[in-house]
Design a protein around this nucleic acid. Structure first.
Length: 570
RNA sequence: GGCGCGGUAGCUCAGUUGGUUAGAGCGAUCGACUCAUAAUCGAUAGGUCGGGAGUUCAAGUCUCCCCCACGCCA
């Protein structure tokens, strides 16, 4: 039995995510976790909410709530939606947890001891009205270059000139609108990533089996311009992990917190500690410490391409730099973006389908199937309602759902709601069994390799094989001349249903569970031996004809949804 | 402007280390079947593999140049 540690990039606390975010990390991670569990392996699947930083503070202020309260509420909202999509996290943690605070401070202390952190003095804009330092993009003013009046502190949107907040004429806070800004000297900590450049490059070079998307992004950051740059890991904020050197105070860093990108990935580890503290397990170290049982763990991370630099460079610097035997990632599966109907998803314009809305329209399985079978692996892909309707109706309703329906209903009308008596499987049956066996092995290979789209194609072909068989042997006509032979044919077809359910469970867990229930075959294991599995439902085994497993999406629904989620176009 | 990923049948995409007549699903057309969610199954459809040049006995698959789309960065 292998052991798999699986993490999904942690979604930011601010707001509900859209389908593109879902398919970029959490959903494929869940597919892989469910598959590995299905194969009988031990799995630890972790995710969390990323809660620190200015956007969270501003969103809380807008909602009129203290930031801690806002985050707690939003965490619950995201947790419920994740449940709705059947994301099977062993724990869904919070980067604001005590566990993460302690661990982040611990890592910072270790990195400081290793000489990998340096202090830098810089000037930053302080807003008296807001009572805080302002990040560059929260300051606007008149561009000194082109005169544009809403130039941001980091760049002018009009002439694209790169700016410093101090360059702006008549700068003001975009939070309060206040013009009472003052340049103040402040000290920050920088992680000396550049020190690790060689080690990181060697490490990345050794990962020849990683997706090109992952390694190309990592190499770009390692080699572009002057190479990997040091990065600030602290901010002048209230909401975050207070800067400490392990358990000790950090002189000169009072009132500062670590910047989100530093503490967020550490939450992967802290989430396992939260898992223990929540009473769900007893030993987190055997997943995360190679000196405490994690040496045989395979660790896989899932994320969208925007997160690749943090996972290939920054977080590994933290791990390497600690000098402690933390489990390092073995494989990074990254995804491109999902576009929406000819453009991008847009939160501000209400364009595209968001996770909560999706579940109001249809059960999770429909979304899971479309998203996974169209996962943006090799390039950006696009959601259209036509494609969604077509895939769901054709694959789920016609090929899989209708197969179950035709078999069970035929059996009920010609025999009974139990597997009929008959004889032994003949040549046609053995041929199908061999065909399915071969296809299952291919499916397994693609799932092991996290080839999501190909796996979906394989699965669909396995479903279709059942229909092909029925069409060939035609039990409805066999029945007229040789009822016993028809009984054999139907017995095999009935046996395909629990097999399909188990194989499909990683993609469509709810439908899989309901099919197993209908067939009274809840305990069906993964078909390591397909032939044996297809004889498991013996004559006399009772079942019930299931309700419609997947209903069809009508043209009217498709059109109305398309209109409803179009947002305000440019 | 630099960089990255792409540009393969109407649509969505596969195409391993270069090698027989370039593949799948959907759609379309024709046919078969009638157990089933008007479902299924089979056959067919002939795409200069973005454009050009080069390397090679042989290139969608390697090299160079150009064009287009998308994204990232400064």
């Amino acid at each position: 039995m292998a052991r798999h540690l699986i993490t999904s990039a942690i979604p930011y606390i601010n707001g509900i995510k859209h389908l593109g975010n879902l398919v970029g990390s959490q959903l494929p991670a869940d597919l892989f976790a469910r598959y590995q569990r299905g194969r009988g392996h031990e799995v630890m699947f972790l995710c969390a909410t990323d809660e620190h930083g200015t956007p969270a503070e501003l969103a809380a202020a807008k909602a009129g709530k203290p930031v801690a309260e806002y985050c707690a509420e939003m965490h619950e909202v995201q947790a419920r939606i994740a449940e709705g999509f059947r994301l099977s996290f062993d724990h869904f943690g919070r980067s604001s947890s005590v566990q993460n605070h302690k661990l982040t401070q611990h890592f910072a202390g270790r990195l400081a001891d290793a000489g990998l952190i340096r202090e830098v003095s810089e000037t930053q804009m302080y807003s008296h009205a807001d009572g805080r330092f302002l990040p560059d993009r929260y300051i606007e003013g008149t561009c000194p270059n082109c005169g544009f009046e809403s130039a941001r502190g980091d760049q002018c949107d009009n002439c694209t000139k790169q700016l410093d907040p101090t360059d702006l004429i008549n700068p003001y806070s975009t939070i309060s609108g206040s013009t009472e800004l003052e340049e103040r000297e402040t000290k920050h900590l920088y992680l000396r990533q550049s020190e690790m450049r060689g080690k990181l490059a060697d490490w990345i070079d050794s990962k020849s089996d990683w997706p090109v998307l992952t390694t190309s992004i990592a190499k770009k950051w390692l080699n572009d311009g002057d190479g990997l740059q040091d990065r600030g890991i602290t901010r002048d904020l209230d909401w975050g992990v207070p800067v400490m050197k392990g358990d000790a105070p950090w002189p000169g860093m009072e009132g500062k917190v670590f910047y989100v990108w530093f503490d967020a990935p550490i939450e992967y580890i802290a989430a396992a500690q939260e898992w223990v503290d929540a009473g769900k397990g007893t030993d987190w170290a055997r997943w995360w410490r190679t000196d405490k049982g994690a040496e045989d763990v395979t660790y896989t991370q899932f994320m969208g391409k925007d997160n690749v630099p943090f996972h290939t460079l920054s977080f590994p610097v933290t791990i390497f730099g600690s000098g402690e035997p933390w489990k390092l990632v073995d494989y990074i599966k990254s995804f491109n973006y999902l576009n929406y109907d000819g453009g991008q998803f847009s939160t501000s314009r209400g364009r595209g389908v968001f996770m909560d809305q999706a579940l109001e329209l249809l059960p999770a399985d429909y979304w899971r199937w479309w998203l996974l079978s169209h996962a943006p692996e090799s390039s950006d892909s696009e959601f259209t309602w036509e494609s969604f309707q077509s895939s769901c109706n054709k694959d789920l309703a016609d090929v899989l759902g209708n197969f179950v329906s035709r078999v069970t209903k035929f059996c009920r009308s010609k025999f009974s709601e139990a597997v009929p008596e008959g004889g032994n499987y003949g040549p046609d049956e053995l041929a199908l069994i061999e065909d399915i066996s071969r296809r299952v092995r291919t499916y397994e290979q693609h799932m092991e390799a996290m080839e999501v789209r190909k796996s979906a194609q394989d699965l669909r072909a396995i479903w279709a094989a059942g229909n092909e068989y029925l069409q060939t042997v035609a039990p409805w006509s066999t029945f007229k001349t040789d009822p016993a032979k028809a009984a054999i044919q139907i017995r095999l077809a009935l046996n395909l249903i629990p097999l399909y359910a188990v194989l499909s469970a990683p993609f469509i867990p709810d439908a899989a569970a309901s099919l197993l229930g209908s067939m009274n075959a809840e305990e069906t294991p993964w078909p390591d031996d397909v032939a044996a599995q297809l004889s498991k439902l013996a004559p006399g085994h009772a079942f019930t004809v299931p309700e419609v497993t997947f209903r069809k999406i009508t043209d009217e629904e498709r059109d109305s949804w398309q209109e409803r989620f179009a947002g305000t176009r440019d």
